[in-house]
Design a protein around this nucleic acid. Structure first.
Lengths: 209, 209
DNA sequence: ACCTGAACACCGTTCAAGT
DNA sequence: ACCTGAACACCGTTCAAGT
């Protein structure tokens, strides 16, 4: 069974789903491929290079929104699709957060977000800044979602008990994370950001679309 | 020289500043303290417990805003102070992102944000969700800021060259991260979110303050 | 060109034994 | 109570040597 970048990559993504980011080691990956560790280093420069490729692969799942969407629907679709892409693999958000790659899919994700923000009527010199702001929100939210997936519900109970002593707000905060489902929390925060964008655009309009 | 939780913790934070999160190992920490590795495990249950304590220590730097501030000023101060706390140590944001602790400072950070959002006039059942949204934004932004600090400017040049081939937007995006300073990017994104909050509050007002 | 085999320089964690 | 000393079970990476 011959090796190849593609084969290594897909096996690595499988391992990620099965065991999580922590357990993804070059040695386990080699064993899973029926090969000695050293062999991997002919195809990839190192573990980080492999992780970068995995992140790039995940961002490749981002669905380009239909071209006839209004800016707000377009940004909602993009942000939702980005979140889904990150959620497609266990620890996907943390994986992407740990890499900073200039590869096709990563760059096109950035430019898709930026052009959608431009379409909202935001001035060019602020558009990319705000596109990144949106990206950070999606990334941060999804990291936390997946962190919760990996946590046993018992340890979350314990956390709640701890919080009860602290303050009303602290307890209510945690409880809402437990009760309100992730989709709703995600889109609630997103909508507030988009409300802000539309207000920003109406203040100093740069018409487009 | 006797060991203690406090001594281990402060030496660990120094090591973090000097070498970064990757290089912070139990063995190096033990050596820096003039002690054998095993000794650390009497004071901390494991490396994660130490990291949790470090995160808790960092969040302890969050300055409580004056009580007579208007909600928007209060949230701006809180978010800015949170960012500064995370930036007080090398890789501070990534450190905090990797922990999910129910300890006093962590919980009080959450409740400070939540009560400030409540003060903005947001309905209680949405306040904590939006407080978290804000938290994710600050965390994500600061992680990226610190990632850039740790990157050589040459590798950033190389990234830009890569991006030039991709698309206009991609290049402009990256260039803006390079040119616009971090403070300005941070508060630009924050303002948009706060604009959204005020709009949200005016739609279904829950008056407070 | 592509992989083996073995080594190098590390890790986190445990635990009997010492003091 | 607090730490030593030593071991266990891992890591990522390199590289001569094989095919």
């Amino acid at each position: 069974m011959r090796l190849s970048r593609a084969k290594i990559l897909s096996r690595a993504l499988e391992l990620l789903d099965e065991q999580g980011l922590e357990a993804l080691t070059m040695r386990k990956l080699a064993t899973a491929l029926g090969v000695h560790v050293g062999g991997l280093y002919w195809h990839f420069d190192g573990k980080q290079a492999l992780l970068d490729s995995m992140a790039e692969d995940i961002l490749g799942l981002l669905a380009p929104p239909g071209p006839d969407l209004e800016w707000r629907e377009r940004l909602t679709a993009l942000a939702g699709s980005l979140r889904q892409a990150l959620r497609s693999r266990r620890d996907g958000a943390r994986l992407v957060a740990g890499t900073f790659v200039a590869q096709p899919n990563t760059l096109s994700t950035g430019s898709a977000l930026t052009s959608a923000v431009l379409n909202a009527g935001i001035a060019p010199e602020r558009a990319s800044t705000l596109a990144f702001a949106l990206f950070y929100y999606v990334l941060g939210h999804t990291i936390e979602e997946q962190a919760r997936d990996s946590q046993s519900s018992e340890s979350f109970e314990a956390l709640l008990v701890q919080a009860e002593g602290a303050s009303e707000e602290a307890e209510a905060s945690l409880r809402s994370m437990y009760e309100v489902d992730a989709d709703q929390r995600f889109f609630t925060g997103l909508d507030v950001f988009l409300d802000g964008l539309s207000l920003e655009a109406s203040k100093s309009p740069h018409p487009r679309a």
